[in-house]
């Protein structure tokens, strides 16, 4: 019998799913992903998490609950840092402990601590640590690692070609028939910045990408950019940004602000997100200072209504049209 390993469809699923899936499957596990976020998932998460938690963490709680009873093991690595001298965020660092404190009948969890902030060369050690949950053979783990890296690179290649993350992930998991291409007529190009787990979770983002697309916008996101571009741009800040995801947002913003074909910039932030509250301020400030590209700031939370979002992005795209973008 294959070991059933659960991956919540939330938070870092939207960054590392191809890697995780390929690695776990190569080691003989059956990967079970929680369903797409829906009302029940969100409500369960909201009920269980503390009120003050940010929306993505609440959503994550909901997905963990959805997997309980469905899997033998939960894959919940403690993501402290995925690169030198930068962190994810405090809540991600405490997440496995927060879940343990809130859920009594939690299955066994794989909660290896990923902390590359001081020693990026520690990665092989961590990969082995996860691998040892499944096999004692180092060679098998190394082969699985190789497989995982290839899968992630392939997936990221598809994103750079202009496919959206959620679509690529579903395609790789066999949930979607194929890769979709938006062929509708486009009037302008909009850069949509924000955390992947906000942008591509259709329920909590209220399908903002499709909505923009229907209004005639071709949408680009930070995930279309190679890491080098983001790092180079972010390095222009007076002080190094010590949140990896914040760096992606500010780095891509600085890049998009220099592109002559970008007609508008939208930042989607989630209510209660600590880094977003400061990074968002910089995004807004820099785009105002550039004085060229209209900017829209959208905060989403568990109360946000679809009508409100629709009205705001309609107003925004109307303004872009009025500005004469074509």
């Amino acid at each position: 019998m294959k070991l059933r390993v659960g991956i919540p469809r939330a938070l870092f699923y939207y960054y590392y799913f191809p890697w995780w899936k390929a690695f776990l499957e190569a080691l003989g596990a059956e990967v079970v992903v929680s369903p797409e976020t829906n009302k029940a998932v969100l409500n369960d998460g909201v009920k269980l998490a503390v009120d003050e938690a940010c929306l993505p963490v609440k959503v994550f709680y909901g997905h963990v609950l959805a997997l309980i009873g469905q899997v033998d093991v939960l894959f919940l690595p403690r993501l402290v840092s995925v690169e030198h001298k930068a962190y994810i965020c405090p809540k991600l660092m405490g997440l496995p402990d927060m879940l343990r404190a809130s859920i009594k009948d939690l299955p066994r969890i794989i909660d290896v601590t990923v902390d590359l902030s001081k020693k990026p060369e520690k990665l092989p050690e961590l990969v082995l640590e996860v691998g040892r949950f499944f096999t004692g053979k180092k060679k098998e783990i190394m082969a699985a690692w190789h497989e995982a890296t290839r899968a992630q690179e392939y997936a990221e290649g598809l994103i750079r070609q202009g496919h959206m993350v959620d679509n690529v992930w579903s395609f790789l998991a066999g949930e979607a028939e194929g890769l979709t291409v938006d062929t509708g007529a486009k009037r302008f190009k909009v850069a949509l910045v924000g955390h992947a787990y906000n942008l591509y979770d259709r329920y909590i983002s209220m399908n903002i990408i499709d909505r923009l697309s229907r209004l005639g916008a071709s949408v680009v996101t930070p995930d279309f950019l190679p890491d080098e571009v983001i790092n180079t741009e972010a390095a222009r800040l007076p002080k190094r940004m010590f949140w990896s995801l914040g760096k992606r947002i500010i780095g891509s913003t600085l890049h998009f602000l220099q592109q002559s074909d970008i007609n508008g910039l939208i930042h989607v932030a989630s209510f209660g997100c600590g880094p977003d509250s400061l990074v968002g301020d910089l995004v807004e400030r820099y785009s105002h200072r550039s004085g060229k590209i209209p900017f829209l700031y959208i905060t989403i939370d568990e109360q946000t209504g679809e009508a409100g979002i629709q009205t705001r992005i309609e107003a925004f795209t109307d303004m872009l049209a009025w500005k004469g973008a074509s």
Partner: peptide, 16 residues
């Protein structure tokens, strides 16, 4: 302070 990240982690664990 409201939205303080490290203290939200602690808050989640304190009931236990």
């Amino acid at each position: 302070p409201l939205t303080c990240m490290p203290e939200i982690v602690a808050e989640s664990i304190l009931p236990t």
